[in-house]
Every structure is written in C-alpha cells, then in structure tokens.
C-alpha cells in the first residue's frame, strides 16, 4: 500500500498556519515524495479562521483538499472545535497548550504543545509558534526528515528571520516540550 498522509493545520489568520503547511509540503518534496498544499483564509489580514492542508503521498495526488485528516493541528480553540470532527479515528491531534483550553473527548492521540509560550519566552515573538509546532509535528509523526524541513524553512521564510525560525523549529523538536496526555 502506498503511504498517503493528510494533514490539516488550523488556527487564526496571522499565526502562520499557511506557512507551516508550505514548509511541510516543500520538505516532503525534498524527501522525494509527492505533496500538495492548499489553504483557506478570510478576507482579513489577521484574526479570521485560517487553515492549511497538506497531502503527502508516494503517488501522484488528484483531489487536493483534505476531507478527513490523519493529523490535525489546532492553534486556537475555535479551530479545534470546528475541525475535530474531521479527524480520522485514532488520528493524531496537536494543540497549542495556551490557546486551546478544552479538548473534547476523542479517541485520537492528543499532544499539547506549548508552541506559543516557547516562541514568546525563547524567541521573544509569538510569530514563531508555527515552526515550534512544526518541530513537534515532525518529532511525533516522522512525516518528513529533519534535514529536508530545515532546508524547506531556509527556502520559505524571509532571510532575516531564518535563524529564529530554525531555532524555533529545533526547540519544537525537543521531546521534553511535548506532553502526551
């Protein structure tokens, strides 16, 4: 069976969910896989519901949207409430620990990642929460290699933020920040 994984990264506009999806898809292509990334966002610059979807497959991808996801990342409470129903049974859920207070009962594997807190305390800006979360996603799921992701980050973010983004990603990859419940 060819492997096909569908990921949905959700949150609010401005949290970098689209960029996180772009980096993930680019890393998959660097690893020699097929990948499609799509996005959905509101007309506002910040604050409206935003989501990014990535399909990583060994085969060519037809339908590009994710209907039922294997991995759901929720960076906000409203995003979780809206998208949890689309997570496959026994899927993987990652939430931002500070932004998502209540997690409804689910049979998914749940990981609470303090992505925003790490970004704020260690990198002095919450804009890096997305790459911290990405580090956690990759540690838990092994979707793509660390090397490919770092290369993808280098090629996806503005030059002046490369260092901080890489640092955030590596912090996210450090196991002790991830608390399975």
């Amino acid at each position: 069976m060819p492997r096909r994984v569908e990921i949905r990264i959700t949150g609010l506009g401005g949290q970098g969910v689209v960029l996180a999806g772009e980096i993930l898809g680019r890393a998959a292509v660097y690893d020699g896989k097929h990948a499609v990334q799509t996005q959905s966002y509101g007309a506002e610059a910040r604050g409206s519901a935003a989501r990014s979807e990535v399909i990583i497959s060994d085969e060519k991808i037809g339908f590009p949207k994710v209907l039922k996801c294997d991995i759901l990342v929720a960076m906000s409470q409203s995003a979780l409430d809206k998208h949890l129903k689309d997570l496959k049974a026994k899927g993987t859920l990652l939430t931002d620990e500070d932004s998502v207070k209540t997690i409804p009962k689910t049979n998914a594997r749940v990981f609470r990642v303090p992505a925003t807190r790490i970004a704020e305390t260690e990198l002095k800006s919450r804009i890096y929460a997305n790459v911290v979360m990405l580090g956690a996603v990759i540690t838990i799921t092994n979707l793509v290699t660390k090397e490919a992701t770092e290369k993808a980050i280098m090629n996806s973010v503005p030059e002046e933020t490369r260092k901080s983004n890489l640092e955030g990603f590596r912090k996210g990859m450090m196991q002790e920040f991830i608390y399975p419940i």
Partner: peptide, 9 residues
C-alpha cells in the same frame, strides 16, 4: 483560486 494558491511540485 484553488489552482493558483495551491502548492505542489
């Protein structure tokens, strides 16, 4: 919009 905003190889 979907084809224009989609990323793929």
């Amino acid at each position: 919009e979907i084809i224009a905003h989609m990323r793929e190889e």
